[in-house]
C-alpha cells in the first residue's frame, strides 16, 4: 500500500468491476475444469473401445454440439486467459519478486501459483494449436486421433500438454475452493492431498489413453 495513493484521496467511486471480473475468472475457470474432466472422460472412452469413442463423438456431431461447442469453448478459453492474465506479472521485475519469494520461503502454495502461471502460458499456446487442429478436422473419430498420435510428434505434444493441463486444472480447482472459502483451514491439507491424488489419476488415465491411441490399429 503506497502512501501517495492514500494521500491523493481520490474520491471513492463505487465500482463493482473487480467483483464481476473475479466472478468471471472463477466461473470461466470452473467451467474449463468441468470441460476438461468431461473431455478426459470422452477421449479416454477409447480405452474401452474405439467404438465407444466414435459413438460419443458422433453424438456430439449429430446434435451440432461439436460445431457450436468447440468454438464456444475456444472463446471461454480465451476469456479465461484474458481475465487470469490480469494476475500474471509481465514485467520481469515482478516475476523475479514472485519467484525469489517462493524460493526464499520454500512455500508450497506460492510455488503452486508459479506452476499455475507457467503452465498457463504453455496451455495457451499448445491448447490453441490442439483445438485448431481438432476442430478444423471434424468429425472426431478414434481412427483419426490414433493416426495423428501415431505420427509421433503429436504423441510428444500431448505428453507435454497433458501434465500441464492437469496440473493447471488441479491447482486451479484447489485455489477456487480456498479462495472462495469452500474449504476451510482445517480441511485445507486433507483437500490438497486428495486434489494431488486426483491430478495424478487424471494424468494416469491420460497416459493410458495416449498409449491406447498409440497401439490402436488404424485399419
Amino acid at each position: 500500500m503506497s502512501i501517495p495513493s492514500i494521500a491523493t484521496h481520490k474520491p471513492m467511486t463505487s465500482c463493482k468491476c473487480s467483483a464481476y471480473l473475479d466472478w468471471c475468472q472463477m466461473l470461466s475457470g470452473a467451467f474449463l475444469i468441468m470441460f476438461m474432466w468431461a473431455h478426459l472422460f470422452l477421449v479416454s472412452s477409447v480405452i474401452i473401445g474405439p467404438g465407444v469413442m466414435n459413438a460419443i463423438g458422433h453424438f456430439f456431431e449429430a446434435t451440432g454440439m461439436a460445431q457450436l461447442g468447440g468454438p464456444a469453448i475456444f472463446a471461454i478459453f480465451l476469456t479465461h486467459f484474458v481475465l487470469a492474465a490480469r494476475k500474471i506479472p509481465f514485467a520481469s521485475k515482478e516475476q523475479g519478486l514472485m519467484l525469489q519469494n517462493a524460493k526464499r520461503m520454500r512455500h508450497a502454495d506460492t510455488w503452486l501459483w508459479v506452476v499455475q502461471a507457467v503452465t498457463a502460458m504453455i496451455i495457451l499456446i499448445m491448447g490453441s494449436i490442439h483445438m485448431w487442429v481438432v476442430l478444423t478436422d471434424l468429425p472426431i473419430t478414434a481412427a483419426k486421433s490414433a493416426a495423428r498420435i501415431q505420427g509421433g510428434w503429436w504423441m510428444l505434444f500431448y505428453l507435454v500438454l497433458l501434465p500441464m493441463v492437469e496440473l493447471h486444472v488441479g491447482i486451479g480447482f484447489y485455489r477456487i475452493m480456498i479462495k472462495w472459502g469452500v474449504i476451510d483451514s482445517k480441511g485445507r491439507f486433507g483437500f490438497k492431498k486428495k486434489e494431488n491424488l486426483l491430478t495424478a489419476i487424471m494424468i494416469g488415465i491420460g497416459v493410458v489413453t495416449l498409449l491406447r491411441f498409440w497401439f490402436l490399429a488404424t485399419k
Binding site: 519469494n101 502454495d109 506460492t110 485455489r175 480456498i178 479462495k179 485445507r188
Partner: peptide, 9 residues
Amino acid sequence: IFGCMGLLA
C-alpha cells in the same frame, strides 16, 4: 479482497 490470489503464505 479480489486481488488476493489465495497464496496462503
